[in-house]
Design a binder for these strands. Structure first.
Lengths: 250, 250
DNA sequence: CGTGCCGTTGACGATATTCAAGTGCAGTGG
DNA sequence: CCACTGCACTTGAATATCGTCAACGGCACG
């Protein structure tokens, strides 16, 4: 079985794969694996991006910093996520990557991705994966610009929950959720104090049940509503009915 | 001369192109061109993304909306920018695109891009262009999450100025700047009232001179400093010295 | 048994929003 | 030609949201 390769699992939830394709994906994990302790940098802003990382276990975060130390998480990397399929072309990384929990990943030389590209289906699957990441970035921009603090936090929890679920990591509506409130603050552009207050409110509304590193969502529908959550990026073929407001001037 | 194709101009500022390559790029503008009046939608969220748009003249904005009408601009499209080189794979667009000023663009069938892909150099150039777009999205996330209102607005002005300059549209430090304060508010996640106040302050500090649709930047260095601007995404080979703060836990 | 980080809460203050009113300008139609 | 309309811009005053400062408890780690 290939269940130990979360990338295979993610792509297979998208489109059926042949045995050869699955084997090609699984071969990625055979190479050199690396482990990182929590809060350790996997790559740093300005580094030449020689390697492509595949997250096998644990969480990581992409982040950017301002000269005075302000720090913004620009995305989370979960098991099955590929780090820099794109960045290899660029001279230097524009952001850093840090382990959130203890992290195990496969370090891939760009050449190792070549065999995958020989399959039309895998090319499309990987392209879809990248576009999903790009759509997620736009969703974050929407969140940071327009959503209230509560909507932002609820939305982030929904996003991570659905991504984990798709990777098979949220059986029975519960999942490991190893980030701190500080991480969540850095991702939502809020202060840790305010994140704490909003989480308290979400708990009181019985919308989330998050203690320690365990998350349960007792009322997913309610949380999605509170978040104004839209999962367009989740599926290649989308919800049919989108809440598009009446035409009005931009 | 190929000066009428801003895409050629942009890519050439990145790497030298052969005559054949320039011709292939210029051929893109020979096909069907379309014009859009200001504030008209070029494409709408949920549409199947059949065509790739190349902006030839004027500005456009990508935007997303929330069910209650809140609206966030997630990026600007300037002359020489390619709309959906990626989105073609996806079932539906996750965002809309609207003309800001009056807009002229070339509508390309995906097949028309094939010839470009035969040149290794152009493939790299277009990949770089896409990565730049992705890096810009991360920069926006950083802005919305961490920068103050003044930094955000100054930063956006810097970004647009540099992009226009690279496309040859800011001779002598002045450029057409056809967006409204409302557009700027929707891009920075601020209210129009506050954008207005911040612009007043920037004017009083003699950092920007923006009236009507004309922008002049009397003190670019000062504006970049006020913006905490970092132009990492501009160049393939980057500034050597980046202001990376001392190592500290995420 | 300290030390340090995470989570929690209260009080206060800063930043940005909302509401409201008024100006100027461009386009429209009498 | 001249109201009339709508939109962009501007400004003030009141308000809300969220940040900062501060203090404390719990827990893990050395």
């Amino acid at each position: 079985m290939s269940a130990d390769n979360p990338l295979t699992r993610k792509l297979e939830s998208l489109m059926p794969l042949s045995a050869t394709e699955r084997a090609a994906l699984d071969r990625l994990t055979r190479g050199s694996q690396l482990r990182f302790a929590p809060r350790r940098d996997v790559a740093r802003e300005g580094d030449p991006p020689g390697l492509v990382w595949l997250v096998l276990e644990g969480w990581a975060a992409r982040y950017k910093t301002l000269p005075d130390g302000r720090r913004q998480i620009v995305g989370f990397l979960l098991p099955g996520d590929l780090c820099e399929p794109d960045g290899v072309e660029l001279g230097r990384l524009d952001h850093s990557i840090a382990a959130i929990s203890s992290l195990r990943c496969a370090a891939l030389a760009p050449l190792q991705l070549e065999p995958l590209m020989r399959s039309q289906k895998l090319r499309r699957a990987l392209a879809w994966d990248q576009m999903t990441a790009s759509a997620l970035q736009r969703e974050w921009i929407l969140s940071l610009g327009q959503r209230t603090a509560l909507e932002r936090i609820a939305n982030l929890i929904c996003e991570l929950y659905f991504r984990l679920d798709r990777a098979g990591l949220a059986p029975g509506g519960a999942c490991l959720f190893p980030i701190t409130q500080r991480d969540m603050a850095d991702a939502t552009g809020l202060s840790t104090v305010h994140v704490n207050r909003v989480l308290k409110s979400l708990r009181q509304q019985r919308l989330v049940d998050w203690q320690g590193r365990q998350l349960r969502i007792p009322n997913l529908g309610g949380l999605m509503t509170a978040a104004l959550f839209s999962a367009g990026w989740l599926h290649p073929g989308w919800e049919a009915s989108m809440p598009v407001p009446a035409a009005m001037p931009l």
